[in-house]
Design a binder for these strands. Structure first.
Lengths: 109, 109
DNA sequence: TCCCATAGTTCGGAATCTCGGAACTAACGA
DNA sequence: TCGTTAGTTCCGAGATTCCGAACTATGGGA
């Protein structure tokens, strides 16, 4: 289990953020983590809508979000604590996250 | 050559926009069309940075942008006139396009 | 009218990405 | 030490992407 990679703020790329959030499941996961302030990955997220997300898929979704610079993951005992990096992302790309989440918010959900 | 498909404003989906613009080449193309107000596809775009984009790739990039609802394409004689649909997209997802293009702008480009 | 040139689309195959089940690893508790 | 829980890695099947080659549509001569 190799150590988790987190990009530095200045290495966060717009295309990585857009790609990460262009998947509605990942956007929903990101929203859950943001809403909870801090969430344990698999156990707490587990489903999106009424669909169960297999944990291998969940794991890779978290990886994409992490490597895009959107969340920070830290192992705490047996579980993973995930926190959003909104402040850092907002500092680098002001208004981007808000606009994206607002767009998803307007569109059904 | 089947007729070009353009989604109605209310059918434009955030994930499609994010996916379309998560490719830096496509974002650059969109920016060129937006900057020119109206641009002929292949002949006018042709390259991104110093790389030449093959016309089959260009064609599919335009298709992705079009089907995401970001541009409108209309055949005019032998060439294609492309216009951005910023007003419509802005009406549906206020601030989204501006935030995305601003993010790319801050990041080298 | 026929042919050519130009602008774009479609086709097809190789390379890359994605999904998810199965097996594996890490950390804790009894 | 063994079992349980949480998450990662591996890998095969299917979906996407890329780009050259072939094709189609339109307009302009001769």
């Amino acid at each position: 289990m190799r150590p988790l990679f987190h990009p530095a703020v200045e290495d966060i790329r717009p295309e990585a953020i857009l790609h990460a959030l262009s998947d509605p499941d990942r956007a929903a996961i990101f929203l859950k983590v943001a809403g909870a302030g801090m969430v344990e990955a698999c156990s707490a997220v587990g489903t999106v809508g009424d669909r169960v997300i297999p944990k291998s898929s969940l794991s890779s979704h978290f990886k994409v979000l992490r490597e895009a610079g959107l969340i920070h993951s830290e192992r705490h005992g047996v579980e993973m604590r995930n926190t959003v990096r909104c402040d850092e992302v907002n500092a680098r790309f002001p208004g981007l996250l808000a606009a994206i989440m607002d767009a998803y918010g307007r569109c059904g959900r």
